[in-house]
Design a binder for these strands. Structure first.
Lengths: 213, 213
DNA sequence: CATGATGGGATAGTGGCACTAACCAATGAG
DNA sequence: CTCATTGGTTAGTGCCACTATCCCATCATG
């Protein structure tokens, strides 16, 4: 497959593919000669993943590069690679630890972690960028006047635990290690719009059920 | 409260507040005189909502304006106002109906709606921009090689149904109508990062549980 | 009353980011 | 031979959320 064909198959313009090559989001093709390069299915798959992360997941190019670096790091085992790829994802700034809203948010989240039984890995969790992002999100809700305590967070956490089980089940159906980690990233990133839409549809349904049309 | 005080209380720069006033995201203050204006708690609350929507929810300014217009539309009842505000939120482009991935995605979603019992409002659902966004999201997953069928969507839908119940319970705890609709928007928009983080934490937990550290 | 701060209004500029267009010399296919 | 394609490079575009600056009519204070 040449560049033009890759562009045709992926519906991504040649200029954009060149840009991705430049930015290191796509491995260079196998050089057939000094001015010809051959691309294969793996390039097409990777290109689609990149597009999906950027367009559907709205992930900045620099972050995508970082995630891909983890996916392709052969020196890591599956779990670590998966974790590393997921840890590379968050894009929110860290919370300000002096802010009182942040302090109460962190305290409630810790209580919630204990409540749902994730506390055996609470130390690990606190290291995770996801944890800090969660603190920031809960704090900003508190600042807005919608405080969330451990009791309110816990049921949501349990529901997300169930979705996570589904997610990993789906991941395990994939073949190779790279494909599995790619599937996990896809699940983490691309599934989010799906869940978001399902939740809003469910909200509409529930509102209709409660208050009529 | 004068502009400088509003800026101080909200930690939003005067220039930015002026920008929001210009863009119609914030009602002008009560004019005390030709060159003085007075702002109150409602301005502060609204300003915080706007900031949260833009910074946490990454919602474009034009969309925020549209959502606020619905929130403030006194001529609508609560349910309609809520629906209108939520319908104003989506920002993804409509799917291309000719695309085969889109067609299968739509078919599976319709089967899923029937399966989870939302079909009594399926016609309404299909009108909703959320529905079209869902179709686009599922289609793009399919294009990436991760097809989702009705059987896989349904459990997620049921889980989101449970979160939606929680959401509306929380909303009903709010006092006035505007506050309730604002709370619903906050739930729809600002809760998403919280859910996203919880899901990723849960994925980490589950990965550790399955594969060890 | 003098003076410095504050207000609204307006306009132009900034910085980040994801492309996008254009050009180039080398090369390969028909 | 001739024309299309390649990788590489550079500069430009368009959007968007601010941000900075100016203007000058007030207003608060001494």
């Amino acid at each position: 497959m040449r560049l033009a064909e890759l562009s045709e198959a992926s519906q991504v313009s040649i200029a954009t593919i060149k840009y991705y090559l430049r930015e290191g989001l796509l491995a260079p093709g196998r050089r057939v000669s000094a001015t010809q390069a051959e691309y294969d299915e793996s390039h097409l798959r990777r290109l689609r993943l990149v597009r999906a992360m950027i367009q559907v997941g709205r992930i900045p190019v620099a972050t995508v590069r970082e995630v891909l670096r983890q996916i392709d790091d052969e020196s890591l085992g599956r779990t670590v690679r998966l974790g590393a790829a997921l840890w590379a994802l968050p894009r929110a700034g860290d919370p300000e630890p002096a802010d009182p809203h942040v302090r109460t948010a962190a305290a409630e989240i810790d209580r919630m972690l204990a409540e749902v039984g994730w506390s055996h890995a609470a130390e690990l969790s606190r290291l995770s960028p996801v944890y800090r992002e969660l603190v920031a999100a809960v704090a900003s809700l508190g600042r807005l006047g919608y405080p969330l305590d451990a009791a309110e967070l816990a049921p949501y956490a349990r529901l997300m635990e169930q979705t996570a089980t589904h997610d990993l089940d789906r991941m395990e159906q994939q073949g190779g290690e790279v494909a599995q980690v790619e599937a996990a990233v896809a699940a983490a990133v691309l599934f989010e719009p799906v869940l978001r839409c399902l939740r809003r549809l469910a909200q509409e349904q529930e509102a209709i059920r409660r208050y009529g049309l």
